[in-house]
Amino acid sequence: MWENILDQILEPANRGKVIGITCGLLFGIAAAVFGIGKAIFITLSVLVGYFIGKRVDEQGSFHALLDKLVNRDKYR
């Protein structure tokens, strides 16, 4: 029963809604617990971590990403 409910909630058509609701809920809880300033800082830190992780996944390794960032002249 739970598997059917989870499959329906997490199907591609609903995935963005579920992620949005979850992020909103977590931000609301963080704002209530830590205050709005700290909640914004936590949210920005998570977003930066997400984008770094996404780039690492695309590049294949963290070293490749660092090499691309440090040696920018080679890639222009």
Rank of each mutant, 00 (worst) to 15 (best):
G28K: 04
L6P: 00
G28R: 05
A32F: 14
Y75S: 09
P12G: 03
K74H: 08
R55Y: 07
W2M: 15
E11D: 13
E58L: 07
F62W: 12
G20H: 05
Y50S: 05
T22Y: 01
V18A: 15
G28E: 05
P12V: 04
R76F: 13
S45M: 14
N14G: 05
K17N: 13
T43Y: 03
A13C: 02
L66N: 01
S61P: 00
I29C: 06
A64I: 10
P12H: 05
R76N: 08
K68L: 03
Q59N: 13
G49R: 00
A64H: 11
L69S: 07
R76V: 09
R55L: 10
F34V: 03
D73F: 02
I52C: 03
D57P: 01
F51W: 10
G49K: 06
G37T: 09
D67S: 12
D73A: 09
K38W: 12
I9C: 08
G53D: 09
F62Y: 12
T43E: 00
V46I: 14
G60M: 11
G60A: 12
K54M: 08
A39F: 05
T22H: 04
C23W: 09
R72Q: 10
M1L: 13
G53S: 12
L26T: 03
Y50R: 09
G60Q: 12
A39R: 07
N14K: 07
F62I: 15
A30G: 04
A30I: 00
L65C: 01
I5M: 08
R72K: 07
H63S: 14
L6D: 03
L66M: 11
D73I: 02
E3T: 09
G60Y: 08
V46F: 03
G24K: 08
I9Y: 05
R55P: 01
K54R: 10
I5E: 01
L25E: 06
V48D: 02
K17T: 15
I36C: 06
A39H: 08
G60E: 14
I5Y: 01
S45W: 08
R55S: 12
D57N: 08
L65I: 00
T22W: 01
F34E: 09
F51C: 00
A39K: 04
D7H: 15
N4R: 15
G53I: 07
L25A: 13
G16Y: 09
A32Y: 11
I19W: 09
A13H: 04
L66C: 10
S45Y: 11
V33D: 02
I19Q: 08
F34L: 13
I40H: 04
G16A: 14
V70P: 05
I36T: 12
L25M: 13
V18F: 14
E58C: 07
P12C: 05
G28Q: 00
G16E: 12
T43V: 02
L47W: 04
V33N: 03
I19G: 06
N71R: 01
G49M: 10
E3D: 14
I5K: 05
Q59R: 11
K54P: 00
T43C: 06
V48W: 04
